[in-house]
């Protein structure tokens, strides 16, 4: 299973990054969101850390939708999905592979979003960085668990991106709230209760959706279509 997941992730990353226009669309959309939001502040007026963190996670959430939409579209052109179903490995390996590939792509996009948020929204990373990084990884993990499970939902549909956003965003509210609070802390907001409870929230979300992914992905990714 791990072998197949690795092969899947490697193949997906090759296809997205080395062929075609890669992450360009997701990156541009995210950066545009950050830029447009920066217009909301008057010259000389600061954007609060929480506002900046909200825009950062909004960009990341749109990026997640585009990334997973693309990852699952890869299997459609040559009906490769059927080929994957014939493999002797458990089909959850496909879910894991997509999640890993999505995680790498999302992190890569955030490497661009973060400096953009800092520069355009006038933030500095004055909060605790270790906790910030941990928060980033935990929230990304949750986004990828959801994306890899429900991205398979829209196979063969038109207007998938809008469908996926409509489904993903409300489901991810707890995770996004955690991301925003923890991100705000990294941008210098002090949380009275510390980051502990929000990190636990992100962890709980990850647990629930990783479990759901393992249990439910097989139902979604099947040959009957």
């Amino acid at each position: 299973m791990i072998r197949l997941a690795k092969a899947m992730a490697r193949k997906d990353l090759t296809l997205v990054l080395a062929r075609g226009n890669g992450l360009a669309q997701a990156l541009l959309l995210g950066l545009l969101l950050i830029f447009v939001f920066s217009l909301s502040r008057e010259a000389g007026q600061p954007v609060t850390p929480q506002e900046a963190a909200t825009v950062f996670w909004l960009s990341s959430a749109f990026c997640q939708v585009l990334v997973f939409n693309r990852l699952f579209a890869l299997e459609e052109t040559g009906e490769a999905r059927l080929g994957l179903l014939l493999l002797p490995a458990p089909i959850q390996a496909v879910w894991l592979g997509k999640a890993i590939a999505g995680f790498c792509l999302l992190l890569l996009a955030q490497v661009c979003f973060l400096p953009a948020a800092v520069a355009l929204l006038g933030q500095d990373l004055s909060g605790p960085l270790t906790e910030g990084a941990l928060a980033l990884l935990l929230v990304d993990l949750g986004l990828c668990a959801v994306g890899a499970l429900l991205g398979a939902l829209a196979t063969g549909q038109g207007a998938r991106e809008s469908l996926l956003s409509v489904l993903f965003f409300p489901l991810q509210v707890p995770l996004l709230l955690a991301g925003i609070k923890l991100g705000a802390q990294t941008f210098g907001l002090s949380l009275p209760d510390g980051p502990g409870s929000w990190l636990r929230m992100a962890l709980a979300f990850d647990g629930v959706f990783l479990g759901a992914g393992l249990l439910l992905f097989g139902f979604l990714y099947s040959g009957d279509a």
Partner: peptide, 14 residues
């Protein structure tokens, strides 16, 4: 069905 299950698991988290 998959969405129905995932959605309800989300309620307590929300």
């Amino acid at each position: 069905a998959v969405l129905g299950i995932a959605a309800f698991c989300d309620v307590p988290l929300v």
